[in-house]
Structures are given as C-alpha cells and as structure tokens.
Design a protein around this nucleic acid. Structure first.
Lengths: 244, 244
DNA sequence: TCCGATGGTTTTGGATCCAAGACAAGCGGA
DNA sequence: TCCGCTTGTCTTGGATCCAAAACCATCGGA
C-alpha cells in the first residue's frame, strides 16, 4: 500500500508484519476472498503474496484446503534462536574489522535508541501498563541495532537468512502472556553495550562470542518465560539444548 | 509434474532444479508465456511459482519488466558457504548424540554411495570424458550424505535454511569450466569418512569442527577453481575471508 | 442408534481476459 | 543531422470466470 511496486508485494509485506506481530494468530486459516476484499484487490495478487509467505515459511499451503499461519512449535522457536546465534555471531565477526567511524557512531546511536526504548518499556511495565505498540517499537529498535552491524558487514545473504530466522519471534503471543519481561529487556540492553565495546575494541572473536551469547540467552529467557506461563501443561523438555 | 500437489509447486520445483543445475543460465530473463507453454499450463501457476523462487532468492522480480535468474556474485557464493558451514556444523553437532544404529547404518550407506559416485566420476574424468549427468548424481549423493545427518538431528528449520544456502552452488557453470575437480571430489570423500567416524565415536564437538571444515574447504577449493579458470579477468580479492 | 452414501455449498486452483507500463521504431521540428 | 515526441507492439499485473476438490448436513439402511 504505502510501498511502491506490485500489489502482491505490498500484501505480502503487510501480511508478514501482521503475522510476525501476532495480529493474525498462529493457526489461523487465511481465506483468499476475505483477504482480497480486505486489501481491495482481486484474489490473484493475494495468492501470489501467499506463495511468497509460504516460501518464507510463515504459512503453509494445504493443497485444495487453504493456507494456514504456521504454528511454530517450541522446537522451531529454539531452532530459530540457534540459527540466529550462529548467523548473527558470524556477521558480527565479519563486521568488526570493517566498521568505519561513521558505522560506530551509528551503532552508538542505535544503542542509545534501544536503551531509551528499554527504559520507557520498563517504566511502563512498572506502572502496571502494557503497551503492545511500545513493545513493537522496542523490538524494532533491537533489530535496528543489529542492522547497523549487518550493513557494515555487507553480507546480504547472511543478513537475509538471519532475518528470516528473526521473523519467527512472534511479539504478541509472548507479550500477551503478561509475564515479567524486565530481565529480558535489561539483559538485552547490557549485551548490546558489551557487543559495541568489543567491536570498538576491534576484537572480532570477542564480538562474536558476545553476539552468540546475546542471542542464545535471549532464547533461553524467552523459553523460561513461556515455561513459567504454561507450566501446568508442559510436555517433557526437548533434547535440543542451547548450552552447546 | 511427477510430484503430487499443485502445478505451481511442480513448476517451482522444476525451475529450481533447472536454475541450480545451470540449465537455465544466470542472468536469463524468464518469459511467463514461454514457460506457460513449456509446462503446458496457463500463466497463473507460472507466476505463483516465480513468486516462490523470488522469495527463495533464486530469481529477482523487476516490476513490469520481468523476472531474471539471479546472477550470484562471488561474494554471495562465499557467503553461502559460510552460512552452510555454520548450519551444517550445528546440525551435525546436534545429530551426533541422537544417531540411532539404523541412522549410522544409513550414513554408512550414503558414504559408500558417495564414494562410488566419486570413483566413477574420477575415472570418467581421467578418461577425458566429462558427464554433466554424472556430476549431478555426485552432487545428489553428496547431499544425501548430509541429509541423513539432518534427518537424525530433526531440526527442520535449520535444515531448510541450510538447503537454501546449498542451492546457490550452481553445477553447470563450475562444471563447464572443465577444470580439474579431482581434488574436490577426493577431499569430500575423505571428509565424509572423517565426519562419520567422529559421529560414530559420539564426539559432537569433533563432528562439528570436521563438518565446518568440510564445507569451508569445499568453498575454498571451488573458489580456487573459479580463480584459475578466470584468472585473466579477476578483480582484487574480497575482504571476506574463509579462514576465521 | 450409528454408520456410510449423497447432494448442495464453499473454496481453492487454473484459465482467460483486460488494462497499464515498458521498449522500439518512425516521424517531425529545430 | 540530431533530439524529442508519438504510436504501435509486447509483456506484465490484475480481474474475472470456470472446473474440480473438499467440507457439511441430511438421509437411508443396518
């Protein structure tokens, strides 16, 4: 809609956002006609958009039955963080010797913006209010920090794949649990600082392990939160492990 | 065609194969009408298939101008191997403690099949003959070996992403150079054996580093080959490096 | 009462049709 | 002669139309 290009692309983008933020809950079936009237277009571009989302793994096609927003299993969430841990750490390592002073300044800005978002969110949380929009902005600020690193690393393919893994982090389902996310927020903030300092110190290996641990610990925290919320209906722990 | 499901899926699969093997050379523009009569269908499923390929990164859409088979730059090839190195090593590490004796047997079979394919190919090569079909089978045998590992690891997301990276290895362009690929063939063979032995010995870390080195060395060899072939028209070496 | 067959309804997958954007050649004015 | 406009053709993007597969409820028989 806002973006130029074909309608199929616009719709794909819009749906992607809606799915990732949880606006369209996992497990939903997407009716082509419904979407076509929602976006004021015919079914043709809708179907092309759905094909794209299917290729990205966000929805699954069931031939002659419709498309369904993929319900990501616990194991897949864990996998997504494992993948991100590998790819982000790789990108960070590559970026470290390539960062110009302008890049470093941008990184500092992104870190600051993220800190601000974090602070705002924590305050809001302590005030008892939960604001989904604020959580989204926090997530975007979080991504923006890493995007500076990707831009400097100049590794489009790695970036594309890492972002694909990133998409599996559904905001709303987690957010909707109402769990206490302070630790997640603050830890992310601290880790960003540490990563930036390692990069500034031109330590590719240091930045690498920090980036890796950053992603893995986020994953662990997120899972712990999900555990706590749904502790009554848990299946036995999976054999996949974060700890190497 | 052979596969069940929708035509769009069949076409996407067929085109993917054709692109990856180089049957359709990089840089080609794909005319929808041409494809539709080639596959004996209308343009509709063709377009959906193209959307999928675009999402996979195999082709690029240029709005109102057509789709073009992506010309993968040297850096992207290198990136693809870096990604595969991380993901395959991760999957191998995860798989190692999970491999049942049946899995190990399957792995041994796959190794043997790959050895056979390698031997056949080397003999053919020494006889001065170059057989593209044989090279494809070799590649498939190669993939089959790793697929056993993925199956045991049971990490669908990692598998999917690693395979996406795998697709960027274009057979024909490399093959068509007529370069001496013996070293590549043999080294792969040796490394598969080493990886299997590490898995059998239940050494996740050992298997991991071997898998990583396996992929990276393949990448290095491939690049060296491309270098040798096109040594007259080379640009200065990229700043991306395989060696950590 | 329960199970399977049968018909209508819904929704998808695919074909065809139409409009709009891009390329190319020819025309006209400076 | 050269540059810009125009017009015609080609190709894509999107809309509409049609057939086939899947769902759903009802009905009939055991």
């Amino acid at each position: 809609m806002t973006d130029a290009g074909t309608k199929a692309d616009d719709i794909a983008l819009a749906l992607e956002e809606a799915i990732v933020t949880g606006e369209i809950p996992p497990g939903s079936v997407l009716r082509q006609e419904h979407l076509s009237e929602q976006f004021q277009v015919s079914r043709t571009p809708v179907r092309e958009a759905l094909r794209r989302l299917a290729a990205l793994g966000l929805v699954s096609f069931e031939p002659n039955r419709g498309v369904r927003v993929r319900m990501l299993a616990r194991d897949e969430l864990r996998e997504a963080f494992l993948v991100r841990a590998e790819l982000e750490s790789l990108a960070t390592e590559i970026a470290t010797p390539k960062m110009s002073s302008a890049d470093l300044a941008a990184l500092e800005d992104a870190e600051r913006a993220f800190s601000d978002a974090t602070r705002e969110l924590v305050e809001m949380s302590h005030a008892g209010r939960q604001d989904l929009q604020l959580a989204r902005e926090w997530l975007h600020a979080n991504h923006a920090f890493h995007d500076v690193i990707y831009a400097a690393a100049d590794v489009p393919l790695i970036e594309r794949m890492a972002k694909a893994a990133r998409r599996t982090f559904l905001v709303k389902p987690v957010w909707a649990t109402g769990a206490d996310l302070d630790e997640l927020y603050r830890k992310n903030d601290r880790q960003h600082r540490a990563i930036r300092e390692a990069i500034t110190a031109r330590s590719p290996q240091g930045a690498r392990v920090l980036a890796r641990e950053h992603v893995l610990s986020s994953g662990r925290l997120l899972e712990a939160i999900l555990d706590k919320v749904a502790s009554q209906t848990r299946e036995p722990a999976s054999s996949l492990s974060y700890t190497q």
